[in-house]
């Protein structure tokens, strides 16, 4: 019976990882990408814990009476313990970067932000972009973009 529990949770771990990676790849919203990263992280942690799980074992905490009992592997647990805390640090860093992107480019959509960043770079370099993504395909040069960046540019 216990092996079935492990199997079900293994399916859950793989599902969480896949859903998280799908969210990171298919979403264009920066905040949702951070959320998807958290979900994928949870799946990976579950996978690691499952790797050290034994059907017949107890938690790795010694009790005064039962010192010879079989226990699950403590090493993956220690690794996951640190991984979770690192995960929240990385998440906070990613969120502050998202906040910064929003302050500079006034958007949370990755494509729009990338476009505006490119425009700002071109403007700063004084280069006329050879081909705008919104323009017709082809090699002929287009006039310089007239679109200005809303609320763009650094604040400070």
């Amino acid at each position: 019976m216990n092996w079935a529990i492990g199997l079900v949770m293994f399916v859950g771990a793989v599902g969480l990882s896949v859903i998280g990676i799908a969210g990171m790849l298919m979403s264009n919203h920066l905040f949702r990408m951070v959320l998807a990263l958290a979900v994928a992280e949870a799946g990976a942690n579950l996978l690691l814990i499952l790797a050290g799980y034994r059907w017949d074992a107890a938690a790795p905490i010694l009790l005064p009476g039962h010192s010879t009992q079989a226990m699950v592997d403590p090493v993956p647990q220690a690794m996951v313990l640190t991984a979770i805390v690192i995960g929240v640090g990385v998440q906070a860093l990613a969120l502050s970067l998202v906040i910064r992107v929003r302050q500079h480019y006034a958007t949370l959509d990755m494509r729009v932000a990338r476009q505006r960043m490119q425009d700002a770079l071109d403007q700063a370099a004084g280069v006329v972009p050879p081909r705008s993504q919104e323009g017709p395909a082809g090699e002929r040069p287009l006039p310089a973009p007239t679109r200005t960046i809303e609320a763009g540019g650094p604040h400070d």
Binding site: L7, G52, Y53, R54, W55, M71, D73, P74, V75
Partner: peptide, 13 residues
């Protein structure tokens, strides 16, 4: 799966 060969874990325990 479910009965991993825990060499380091066993030693540590």
């Amino acid at each position: 799966f479910g009965n991993p060969p825990m060499l380091i874990g066993q030693g540590i325990q």
